[in-house]
Write a protein that binds this DNA or RNA. Sequence first.
DNA 1: GGAGTATGAGCAATCGTTTTCCCGGACGCT
DNA 2: AGCGTCCGGGAAAACGATTGCTCATACTCC
Lengths: 330, 330
Amino acid sequence: MATISDVAHRAGVSTATVSRALNGKSTVDPELAARVQSAAAELGYRPNGPARNLRKQATAVLALIISDVENPFFTAVARGVEDVAHAAGYSLVLCNSDDEPAKEREYIDVALQERVAGILLTPTGDADSAELLARYALPVVAVDRPLPDSTGDAVLVDSRRAAEQAVLHLAEQGYRRIGCLTGPRGVLTADDRLAGYRDGLRAAGLGGSDELVRRSEFRATGAEAAARSLLAEAAPDALLVANNAMAVGVLAALAELGRRPGRDVGVVAFDDAPWTTLIDPPLTVVAQPAYDMGALAARLLLDRIAGARGEVSTSTLSAHLVPRGSSTRG
Amino acid sequence: MATISDVAHRAGVSTATVSRALNGKSTVDPELAARVQSAAAELGYRPNGPARNLRKQATAVLALIISDVENPFFTAVARGVEDVAHAAGYSLVLCNSDDEPAKEREYIDVALQERVAGILLTPTGDADSAELLARYALPVVAVDRPLPDSTGDAVLVDSRRAAEQAVLHLAEQGYRRIGCLTGPRGVLTADDRLAGYRDGLRAAGLGGSDELVRRSEFRATGAEAAARSLLAEAAPDALLVANNAMAVGVLAALAELGRRPGRDVGVVAFDDAPWTTLIDPPLTVVAQPAYDMGALAARLLLDRIAGARGEVSTSTLSAHLVPRGSSTRG
DNA sequence: GGAGTATGAGCAATCGTTTTCCCGGACGCT
DNA sequence: AGCGTCCGGGAAAACGATTGCTCATACTCC
């Protein structure tokens, strides 16, 4: 593949001039610039990225470490990030941590090696990861969950408050034994939503009991089993479900048990998705602004990279309840 | 950040020895190797990726150019790719082409500059892109659709046959005026599925007419409008829908018109998704092995990169029909 | 006409690795 | 004891761009 000196040779100038001409730097004689342009075009010259990155001691690459691209919430985040990054001339390397600290650390290591300009991640909460990031002073923005010790900017959703409102909504609709299906202990969004659930029960004057709470992975199969056990053992008349994938499992369990959402068991789930209006009754959801979170996070990160030195910021966007049929009796 | 010579200095050896020790190359005295290891650890040394890539004239990065990460089909492909790539020590840069040739070319250009080891893409069909790839002899595997002129390996699904079988299935169930909603002209999967639809009609002895066919973008909103127009103007008693996102639009249109899938209008859609069993009646789908396609494509690409010189291959996986309630009367 | 200044291009250093080449010492064999 | 062979490690040359510095040329102004 043609190098800059091939181009220089063909255009009859030095490599310095080629570089300047191609990067529109300083003043290059228009005629020479034209010669360079055409020489580059004829040779199909593409600057060598690694060489340029080495010399400039900087790359135009961001790392995005999310739990799982197959989760529509993270997918929307990724899309927001990519759109902003791309508009700014940055590329994105995609990493699935599956919420495993070991994988997370491994990917951070790769990012460090590749000297990416910054990292966006949904932290597993692993302290070593955070320490690694801090040690190398790599620009970081956390999405969906904060970093341990809240080093670095974060773009969050007020899950707790949203969960509380979801419970209040269920209570208003006349549900009394409201259960909660949330994610693994230690995952902040899972714990937050549970806390919000408890806030809601308290605010509604409903006593809660741990019997009405189940945890599972943030996936359909685990949630299905958890829902089944909860329904059998605690007889809830409504459920707050902590994410979209879990909702699939819960709805499957209800269908199998012949319990109709809304009339028999009120259901509210986190995360909106296109299909939630297609089921009967339509699913009441807590819609999170995933795309916007990604876009905002990317912008914050680019600002940091550009050298904005301000205080560490935490942006908390709010989720909003979208009431539909699954949370009304009748 | 510490460089290799910092490590060399601290360990009291040359940079060459550090490099050899850290890469487990040739034979380095175990004692020296240990000194190097601990010096590197103490300094928190991370080899400079760009420098290494420059020197080695190779990177451990693959580019993945797909239409849209928010489409669950591509998301599953991406996941398959990522898993395989990661296991082989490769990173993935993610690009959304939105099926726009201009964006596709732009991303190919970026990939070329960054000297990625190979590209996986769902080609828009743009000839310039293909030419670009061919000119630089970059290892490429096409996923879901072949490259123009079928340069490069491809991992496809037998969409046409699957569409035919879906139509035959509908015909068996007693539907007679079967319509088709497919994607934009020129997108191969869209055209293939349409061709398969026509094959199916012919095989079932049903006359087709263009009146029963509509095209839209591969998205929900376009499909909803198209479905509405088709239902109003051509009175089909069944629909073959060419992808998952479109199915959402179609089902929304049916719901709004008060037409029940199955009983009133048979529906079969491409792409399975977790929610398809939650609706009533459950949606009959043509399930594509998206994850496997991604994984296979990545393996083929890695083989090419490793220097497998064999013939250009085309792997055609088969999709299978999953009959559910939306395609049975009653 | 001469001195000073702007303008534009080239030389060469530099980024941090890997890898080739070479050299010194140790060892084995005759 | 002398010679040949390994073997391990260091010096230095790449890799391909960017950029500070220098220098030649032409121009302006007195």
